[in-house]
Design a protein around this nucleic acid. Structure first.
Lengths: 242, 242
DNA sequence: CGGGCGCCGTATGGATCCCGTAAGAACGGG
DNA sequence: CCCGTTCTTACGGGATCCATACGGCGCCCG
């Protein structure tokens, strides 16, 4: 997420750069109106923070210029607190207006509110197991067969186990961990739950349940989810390499 | 353009109603949190103006509830000017925060800024469930049978539930989520509400209520709306078939 | 080299919980 | 006071979960 900050006060610029960088934003700064436009065209920021009282070009004109080609949110930061200034800026195309001095926490929250609408493409944890798609956020499992998608129904316990495995791709999940996290801390002795539900999951998810490629069992330790699907032909000899 | 104003001060309500009506807006008012949610579901406003200090239900909870099914802009109007309150409201899903007393001109400008963004978005929430059409924006359900269209009446609670499900197509909606968002955060134990209203919805919407194809129940977890209508042949238990 | 043992996969049956349905009471607005 | 909505209660059916049993496989050990 890239933010362009246009302010003629270098001290404010420095402070904001430090704070916003710490929040994970990428910062581009400008000290004049013309520079703001130039850098905006150059860097294509996702959010604008624009001060009104800049030399060379008024902030209002900068807003107009930006709105000529960008839909990105514009947050105006200004020392003027009059209603007329706010109305003018907002009607020019700004999305929010904050007066100096402002709380940095509030500013961050307003930036989050503005970017929330633009950046709803937060990567959904979606995992592919051959022709089966697992969407953890939607709690849905679908199998695509010949262009047709059909839903695969999972019981709550099956979900619990699948979630534990998929959220740790490639890593071993101890039998102990699964038992205590799903059935409670008092369960330590394996009475056969795991084998049961792993079998059930494989039957519903694996292309060939008899030859597991994604839900791998580590004998004596636990289970592991292999996101790559393992080898296609497991019957060969892959003995000693380096 | 319809605006819902939720405030416990009837005097403010009256003043805002006059001013905003003069601007060409359609106004819906509410004086309590629960009433705000009810009327929101009922009238589907394009913008929300919510006061924080309302009885029955905190403004924050109202914001959460609205965000459960609506993307409409939320403007918080509050007497509290602390940064913490602002951060909390904005992070809960609000788009703007204005402190009382406020300039009416500024308020109008902020509303214009918020609605400007919505006008560009073009999600037309119309869903088909067999021969039944659900128009979320128009707040209407019609069944077309042999060229003839008849109106289907839904109670407010039925709408609440249908909204939650249809707004999240394909995604599982937890029983917990439905309970807390529709009946309040104090409800956690299922006393049978959900089964009741889901049955009611199925009776009114499903082509064959005995074999649900759109309002799918996920045993032990919640419910899910399947926009594709699922398979014609309901999936049997996973045995050993090709 | 062979047997014993432990671990894993699979199948089956019963106990329990959850879901769908219905009928009736309580509540609130017109 | 009537009517629509919401809530309570109860019951039958089905799904889920759990316990048990059996066969296969690899590993350790004799």
């Amino acid at each position: 997420m890239k933010i362009l900050i246009a302010d003629d006060d270098p001290q404010i610029l420095r402070a904001l750069r430090i704070t916003l960088t710490a929040q994970g934003y990428e910062i581009v700064t400008a000290t004049t109106g013309t520079q703001a436009i130039t850098r905006a065209v150059d860097h294509r920021p996702d959010v604008f923070m624009i001060d009104l009282g800049m030399p060379e070009l008024e902030g209002i004109d900068v807003i107009h210029a930006i709105r000529g080609w960008s839909e990105a949110p514009i947050l105006v930061v200004s020392g003027r607190s009059g209603a007329a200034d706010k109305v003018e800026a907002l009607d020019a195309g700004a999305d929010d207006y904050v007066t100096k001095p402002f709380s940095i926490e509030e500013l961050l929250a307003r930036i989050r509110a503005l970017t929330r609408r633009v950046a709803h493409e937060d990567s959904d944890p979606v995992v592919q197991l051959g022709d089966v798609t697992v969407d953890l956020s939607a709690h849905s499992v679908t199998r695509t067969r010949g262009g047709e998608t059909e839903h695969v129904r999972l019981t709550p316990t099956e979900w619990q186990m699948l979630e534990r495995l998929v959220r740790n791709p490639g890593k071993l999940v101890t039998r102990q961990t699964l038992l205590t996290e799903i059935w409670g801390s008092e369960h330590v002795s394996d009475t056969g739950y795991l084998r049961l539900y792993v079998a059930q999951l494989r039957r519903k998810l694996e292309p060939d349940p008899a030859v597991p490629r994604y839900l791998i069992t580590e004998a004596g330790m636990g289970y592991r989810f292999d996101p790559d699907g393992g080898p296609v032909e497991p019957a060969r000899e892959t003995a000693h390499e380096a």
